[in-house]
């Protein structure tokens, strides 16, 4: 009765563990689950109850998180891919000051860069309403509804300005992400 109860407890824990590892490639996931199963059974053969053996690993989701952390950081450390780097750093954003700062900077600078990109593309199709505007009481960089009320300062210089701003934002975001991955990854 106790043996069956222990087996059921371990099987249930391993099911949750495997589910929590679902983002990992299948052969790797199966390997990790098999190794954990072997470890638990060996501990139980050595005299621990299932509850004691499982308590040493903690919640299956938290334990799986350690493998996923390593997987994302390893992928990011050897990669130039934006998605690999962003995914790895975002994963730590609520747990690491470095990751939080990096994501904050990427969001701020990235939004600015995106704004300049949209303005530059918009100007191609609607040059009369996009530019750097100075009016009697205000200043605007971007799109205005009534261009006759303001004076446009940049003209076609708006294009290189937008291109430079987008490039600068791209380099800053890229640099910040690589910096964060280098600090977060133990062997980056």
């Amino acid at each position: 009765m106790t043996i069956q109860y222990d087996e059921d407890l371990v099987a249930g824990w391993l099911r949750r563990f495997k589910w929590a590892l679902k983002r990992m490639p299948s052969p790797e996931r199966e390997d990790i689950v098999a190794e954990t199963r072997a470890h638990l059974h060996e501990r139980m053969a050595g005299g621990l109850t299932a509850v004691q053996a499982l308590a040493n690993f903690g919640a299956p989701e938290a334990y799986a998180g350690k493998f996923l952390d390593e997987m994302y950081l390893s992928a990011a450390a050897g990669s130039q891919s934006w998605s690999d780097n962003l995914r790895a750093v975002a994963r730590f954003a609520t747990r690491s000051g470095v990751a939080f700062v990096a994501i904050f900077v990427v969001l701020m600078v990235g939004s600015l860069g995106l704004g300049f990109l949209i303005a530059g593309v918009w100007k191609i199709f609607d040059p009369a309403h996009v530019g750097m505007w100075v009016g009697p009481r205000d200043f605007a960089l971007g799109v205005v509804d009534h261009p006759e009320a303001s004076r446009e300062l940049l003209g076609n210089w708006m294009y290189p300005l937008c291109a430079a701003a987008v490039a600068l934002a791209w380099f800053i975001c890229r640099g910040v992400l690589l910096w964060a991955v280098r600090i977060l990854a133990p062997k980056a």
Partner: peptide, 16 residues
């Protein structure tokens, strides 16, 4: 070492 620390470490070293 906590019980659950050794396998993620081994996994990282294997991946590396």
């Amino acid at each position: 070492l906590a019980e659950g620390t050794i396998y993620p470490l081994l996994h990282r070293l294997e991946r590396g």
